[in-house]
């Protein structure tokens, strides 16, 4: 665990990988140190944003060093089920990049639960990982200017669901009718770090 400077109001904690991020995030989000207003997990880091009027970076650093990561936190709780129509524009391309048939890609995508490692890019956009999934999909060479909301996509080791229409460079493999971000719902964001997701093929 390495503590990196991030100005006068934040501290960036770097760890070795996604599992460590989830474990550290689970511990810090469950009991944030005094004066910390945001805990932001990402691919290899957890950012702690403080209110400088309420704490010091030294105090937050000491609290982080005392924190015991909660390993396996991501395996608790019920999985969110997302029915997917696997008819995305890039399904065939993505399957070929992985050396699979489209059917095999769908089978692998639906075979085991995914976990939201972190969020970003847009409100409610989760970066999902599938332990042992073996995903490694390059982004499209030319990003689309408009990706429809509900698009289910792949990039790198991640899968994700576009919460709304936006530009995007991920490979589109399908679409879901479930709104992953809906301001009329509480909570608006269906996917949060640690949430387990099971994709199922919609009939």
């Amino acid at each position: 665990m390495r503590l990196l400077p991030s100005g006068s109001a934040a501290l960036l904690v770097e760890v070795d990988g996604l599992d460590d991020v989830l474990a550290l995030y689970a511990a810090l989000a469950g009991a944030p140190p005094e004066g910390v207003v945001d805990v932001v997990p990402a691919a290899r880091t957890v950012l702690l944003v403080t209110d400088p009027a309420r704490t010091t970076l030294d105090a937050v650093a000491a609290a982080v060093r005392r924190t015991t990561p909660v390993a396996g936190a991501e395996r608790s709780g019920d999985a969110v089920e997302l029915p997917v129509h696997y008819d995305g524009a890039d399904l065939a391309d993505a399957a070929e990049l992985l050396g699979l048939t489209p059917g095999q890609l769908v089978e692998r995508h639906t075979s085991a639960a995914w976990t939201v490692a972190f969020c970003g890019f847009a409100p409610g956009f989760g970066y999902l990982v599938q332990p042992g999934g073996g995903w490694d999909v390059p982004r499209r060479a030319t990003p689309r200017t408009k990706v429809p909301p509900g698009s289910v996509a792949l990039a790198g080791e991640f899968s994700g669901v576009y919460p709304r229409e936006s530009p995007g460079g991920w490979q589109l493999i399908g679409r879901t009718d479930v709104a992953v971000f809906d301001l009329a719902r509480d909570p608006a964001a269906l996917l949060r770090p640690g949430t387990r997701v099971r994709f199922v093929a919609a009939s």
């Binding site: 995030y25 207003v37 932001v40 944003v49 209110d51 969020c119 847009a122 956009f125 964001a189 770090p193």
Partner: peptide, 11 residues
């Protein structure tokens, strides 16, 4: 909106 960055919601 402090406290929601982990959901992809900026301040």
């Amino acid at each position: 909106r402090p406290g929601q960055a982990a959901l992809g919601i900026g301040r």
